[in-house]
Amino acid sequence: MAVGKEIRLKITSIKNTQKITRAMEMVAASKMRKTQERMQATRPYSRKIAQIIKHLATANPEYKHPFTLERPVNRVGVILISSDRGLCGGLNANLFRLALRRIRGWTEQNIGVRFGIIGQKGAGFFSSIGADISAQATKLGDRPHLENIIGVIKVLLDEYNEGTVDQVHLLYNEFVNTMTQRPRLVQLLPIHTEDIVADRQHQWDYIYEPDAKDVLDQLLVRYVESLVFQGLVENNACEQAARMVAMKSASDNAGKLIKEFQLIYNKARQAAITQEIAEIVGGAAAV
């Protein structure tokens, strides 16, 4: 019976697609769990380092590090964290939209923007719109290491020290929960000391080795690095969660399509059978 061969082929092809999307969904789900654990694992470090900076700000207020000084803004640097791979819903698109909106805002105030880009998707997009990219790191994989992004951070920090950029921001996706990821822009430099300085009542100071300035220099660099790294692992968790959700809805949609086509196919087959019987009956009556 040659009825509905095309429909049958179509159903098979959709079924195959569904198999792929379902597999991707499951892979993303298991990866998401791991990335979330990694996200948790970075928290103690950033919490500790923030604490030490708070201590330092209260204990040693006379030394002002350039990272804490506000200055007039001519150009900002943005470290943008995107995913390396696609098929994760609107994750990157939402991030880029926020970035473009901010760029427009800055451009209206005559503020230039320079980018340090992490992730393949961001690199592709921002080079295609002709953005000013000063550093990039891509293909970090599912287990990114701090060493992979030190270069990008250092380029931006150096530019800040040289005065090429006057602020450094970090743009990434914040992991709210599995269903929700929110693009987020935070200012890295200058570090808002008002937030950090809590109370000056307990006057005490550290013993420094080798001296306060050297230690503080390293501490603030590490602090920025830990913030960026945390953004990276958080963005990674977002990517997997978004992919899981996107693939789930793709599988569901494929299921719906299959049902529809199955219905059409059955109807066509039934119609063909009915017609055949009618023909036979008609033929028999004529004899």
Partner: peptide, 8 residues
Amino acid sequence: ALEAKRRA
């Protein structure tokens, strides 16, 4: 840092 710049 140089590597990151070069890639850009």
